[in-house]
């Protein structure tokens, strides 16, 4: 797992936030405080605030996808299947050799990642995470990505959980 994701998980644990439970403002304040703490990872791995914010969106989207309604999981799976129909699972360079999936035209190749435990029907696990991340971008960057029809198609589907 990404080191910044581990850092975020620790911050979540320190704040008392529990998946599946409503979050209080006190817990959100505690989370913000935890994210402000200096940490050794930051010094050695150049983990930036931008990366932590993106990781927060990424991991939060995983939680929403995993704990969300069945219709949402099916929607994501169907979109992944439709976009990658007939594609083979391959190594997703430039990631490590263990990262495999379907390339398609995702704005970033990791969105097409598949996992061994999914067998023959990939869930599209990295679609909500990778596309929710875009909401953490500054507005001009988000506008650039929104103007791409391929990005917009998937982003609108991923955001269906909110509307």
């Amino acid at each position: 797992m990404d080191r910044s994701a581990r850092l975020l998980n620790k911050a979540l644990a320190d704040s008392g936030i529990t998946p599946g439970k409503a979050v209080t403002w006190r817990e959100m304040d505690a989370l913000k405080q935890a994210l402000r703490k200096p940490n050794p990872v930051k010094a050695t791995e150049a983990v930036t605030r931008v990366r932590i914010r993106r990781t927060f969106y990424h991991e939060a989207a995983h939680w929403v996808h995993r704990e969300g309604p069945k219709w949402y999981q099916e929607l994501i799976r169907a979109h992944f299947e439709a976009r990658t129909q007939g594609e083979a699972v391959v190594h997703l360079a430039p990631y490590g050799p263990g990262t495999r999936g379907k390339k398609d035209r995702w704005y970033e190749i990791y969105a097409g990642r598949t996992y061994d435990w999914e067998r023959s029907r990939p869930d599209g696990v990295e679609l909500p995470s990778r596309y929710f991340e875009l909401l953490s971008l500054p507005s001009p960057d988000l506008a650039h990505t929104w103007n791409d029809p391929d990005v917009r198609e998937t982003l609108l589907i991923v955001l269906r959980i909110l509307f």
Partner: peptide, 18 residues
């Protein structure tokens, strides 16, 4: 407006492709 001064890998690809 499209000559990004900085970008992440995905954003750069989207903008150049477009």
């Amino acid at each position: 407006t499209s000559r990004l001064a900085s970008a992440d890998v995905g954003l750069l690809r989207v903008v150049l492709k477009r």
